[in-house]
Write a protein that binds this DNA or RNA. Structure first.
Length: 292
DNA sequence: CCTCTATGGCGAA
DNA sequence: TCGCCCTAGAGGC
């Protein structure tokens, strides 16, 4: 679930639900009792995301710093009435609750309180995040252009580009017919620019829909429905709208190469291949993605 | 019951 | 490169 689009969407929804309120903070599971006690009773200033990191600022106390990892979830539920609070189901590490919403965090790989200095340190470790308005891709290009590591490896390195994960990696490399095993220093500037521009298009769509969409026909459909892909935060809208997806209803989940190993390439028909790169399953077409 | 998988990332070796 | 952390759901026996 969580690549950068997911965290930015989540941050927007948390901001919508909790900013300006003073939620009760608890740890039903008991593994974040101290942190919850520190944050409880302090107003939420804002929630924001950087790459795959999520921060919630509590005035006069600290930041809540969350990384969902591979399997984490932070579910926001609108309360039908203020006193109809659902019981915590499963391993809820953190629960935020105000008059209108309950948000439950489960399975996060990281959940801690952080100072402003800690937050700065995390932000400083991250490469440019395509979902941050006005961000400069130059540092990412500088790293890639001099690296002997493969482009597939580099795209997953959060200090090179923040927020790109395993689906966007395979899919953007396919969209631009780039050989995933090409060293960064052999990637042409024009190719990097095209990939970056593509992320600027695809990731906001992911934020808007709560889903990764990469296939050209689906991207066209989304754009045809007038989804604003330029404006990232502030996102506006209600939390329930976010949960539904602004365009209404999920887009059919299909990709060019992701998880399609052994199936025919939709462009050339050759079998989609897979291999573990940077610890994750990479998918690509060995015929379409050559020499770029 | 068990094993496997998942859109991450860390530290040990 | 490997093992491990986090959790839930699917599938096999």
């Amino acid at each position: 679930m969580p690549e950068g689009h997911h965290l930015h969407r989540l941050a927007a929804a948390l901001d919508e639900a909790f900013a300006g309120t003073t939620p009760e903070v608890s740890s039903p599971q008991g593994r974040f009792t101290g942190g919850a006690a520190l944050l409880d009773g302090h107003p939420v200033v804002e929630a924001f995301a950087a790459g795959k990191h999520l921060f919630v600022e509590f005035a006069g106390a600290a930041y809540l710093h969350v990384h969902l990892g591979l399997i984490g979830q932070f579910d926001i539920t609108p309360l039908v009435a203020p006193d109809t609070v659902p019981p915590a189901v499963g391993a809820v590490r953190v629960r935020l609750r105000n008059e209108g919403y309950v948000a439950d965090l489960r399975g996060a790989t990281l959940c801690e309180t952080a100072t402003a200095g800690d937050v700065e340190q995390v932000l400083g470790r991250l490469g440019p995040d395509p979902l941050r308005p006005g961000v400069d891709p130059a540092p990412a290009w500088a790293r890639i252009a001099k690296s002997p590591r493969t482009i597939a490896d580099l795209l997953m390195d959060q200090s090179v580009l923040a927020g790109v994960g395993n689906v966007y990696r395979s899919e953007t490399l396919f969209r631009h017919r780039v050989d995933p095993f090409r060293p960064g220093r052999e990637i042409r500037r024009a190719t990097f620019d095209a990939i970056w521009r593509d992320l600027l298009l695809l990731m906001p769509i992911g934020v808007r829909l709560g889903q990764i969409v990469t296939m050209a026909d689906q991207v066209e459909d989304v754009l045809g429905e007038g989804v604003d892909t330029s404006l990232v935060p502030p996102l506006g809208g209600t939390v329930s709208a976010w949960r539904r997806g602004v365009v209404g209803g999920a887009v059919e989940r299909r990709y060019y190469v992701y998880k399609r190993q052994g199936e025919p390439c939709l462009v050339c028909g050759s079998r989609i291949r897979t291999a573990v790169v940077a610890g994750r399953n990479l998918f690509w077409c060995g015929r379409c993605q050559r020499r770029r």
